[in-house]
Design a binder for these strands. Structure first.
Lengths: 137, 137
DNA sequence: CCTGCACCCCGTAGCGGCTACGGGTGCAAG
DNA sequence: CTTGCACCCGTAGCCGCTACGGGGTGCAGG
């Protein structure tokens, strides 16, 4: 119920997004071009906050810009289909799981290797050993 | 024990790295500029393979280019100090663990949400709900 | 000897998803 | 009236490559 004009700065902080990012989203047509004041300043409405907040939460959940484009289209009131949304989300979940597995493997190797470090100013080091060892994927 | 000249293509495949990436590493001074044949082709030596393979393994372990620069300096035979190497690796391990934790949280939220999808062409969808819900970090 | 082809040369632009910079207006409070 | 912030715009930079285009080189087969 704010009466102040919805400038880009206010929109950005209302949605918890960087101001420059809002302009970027407009450039790549993720956000629609808003109305302008006589002097050319952007004038947003409540709906823009909701859209931007949606985008922000989707980004936090790691969805790509293109996936968000799809989700936004599917989120249109007339259009919503849980099955189609589920497909996008499942694809993303699969990608997240793949990255997670990779990162976990990495963590294990690094943790084991670092743990074997003496911490001495010695010339032999397990970390360098693992990087120098001839092993091919 | 190969007698064939070590061209960039051979070096790249010996170390398991893309050819363009080798030239990129040279541009950013991660690989030293090699000797050249009369016609200007790069002529590498065995040492270059070892250095490039080191870089590749470090990249696979997720070290940044700048971290690798440091590791390569510390790996110099005269220079090696396990304590200093350990510090770089520990920093990287901390970063990996932070990403891992974030990604795990993400995975849980996505998995839970997707699991609640009906799969119907219904207008209500848990995935859209979570993106539309007003919650601020 | 000539042709064809793989390999090499170089510089530059593109990817994703922003972020920063620079130089210019608009506008409101003190 | 002046200060100073918020906004305007276009462009370049970040990381770590990858791709593209338009050439030149080197070697094997015919």
């Amino acid at each position: 119920m704010s009466r102040r004009p919805l400038t880009i700065g206010r929109l950005a902080s209302a949605a918890g997004v960087n101001l420059e990012t809002v302009r970027y989203y407009e450039r790549i047509k993720l956000m629609p071009p808003p109305a302008r004041t006589a002097s050319g300043h952007r004038a947003y409405e409540e709906g823009h906050i909701r859209r931007l907040a949606f985008i922000r939460r989707a980004r936090e959940l790691g969805f790509s810009i293109e996936q968000i484009r799809t989700l936004l289209a599917l989120a249109e009131p007339t259009r919503a289909s849980c099955a189609e949304v589920q497909e996008v989300a499942q694809t993303h979940l699969d990608e997240v799981r793949a990255k997670l597995a990779d990162l976990a493997k990495l963590e294990r190797i690094l943790a084991e290797t670092v743990a074997r470090c003496s911490g001495d100013p010695a010339p032999s080091c397990p970390v360098l050993d693992i990087l120098t060892t001839q092993k091919r994927a």
